[in-house]
């Protein structure tokens, strides 16, 4: 027997609405700390001259640097980044991170200033062994200081 749909007109209206832009300053220390966290030994992530010798403008960002709650950086005078706040109510109270997909169009390096905007790209429903689920796919587009789209992040949140 099919479950009744929980997708409302309010949810459908939220699809495609772009957020206010956020600014990310890509800094050397952040790159180094992130690279160290993932266990990278490649010196392009730590040594500026070495990175330049390998053809980069400065330290490049490792994969996965974007899309974390650490960028944009925390500010005490602003509400904490509501990573999982949806602009609508659903009947489900539990949430899971369904997955992450990041595409890189060109190297992003320390010294770049990125502007990101986010939107809900899709809302769908499915039933699995944990029961009925609402899948919300969000998309964040990153532009650099020259206005080019340099990366795109897609994440899926599962409410159930």
């Amino acid at each position: 027997m099919a479950e009744a749909s929980v997708i409302t007109d309010e949810m459908r209206a939220a699809i495609g609405q772009e957020s206010e832009p956020a600014t990310i300053e890509v800094e050397k220390t952040a790159v180094r700390v992130f690279a160290r966290a993932v266990g990278y030994t490649d010196l392009i992530y730590y040594d500026e001259e070495y990175a330049k010798s390998k053809g980069y403008r400065n330290l490049p960002i490792p994969m996965g640097f974007l899309g974390n709650p650490g960028n944009p950086i925390f500010r005490p005078d602003r509400p904490p980044r509501p990573a999982y706040i949806m602009p609508f109510q659903s009947p489900y109270r539990r949430i899971l991170n369904g997955g992450t997909d990041i595409e890189y169009y060109e190297p992003i390096c320390a010294g770049d200033v990125l502007t990101s905007t986010s939107k809900i790209a899709d809302i769908s429903e499915r039933t699995a062994n944990i029961g009925p689920m609402l899948l919300i796919t969000g998309e964040t587009t990153y532009k650099n200081q020259d206005g080019r789209v340099v990366a795109r992040f897609r994440g899926t949140l599962i409410q159930y």
């Binding site: 899971l96 991170n97 997955g99 992450t100 997909d101 990041i102 595409e103 190297p107």
Partner: peptide, 10 residues
């Protein structure tokens, strides 16, 4: 080489 896309599900 260059890594262009990394996608995974949890």
């Amino acid at each position: 080489g260059r890594v262009k896309r990394v996608a995974c599900q949890y």
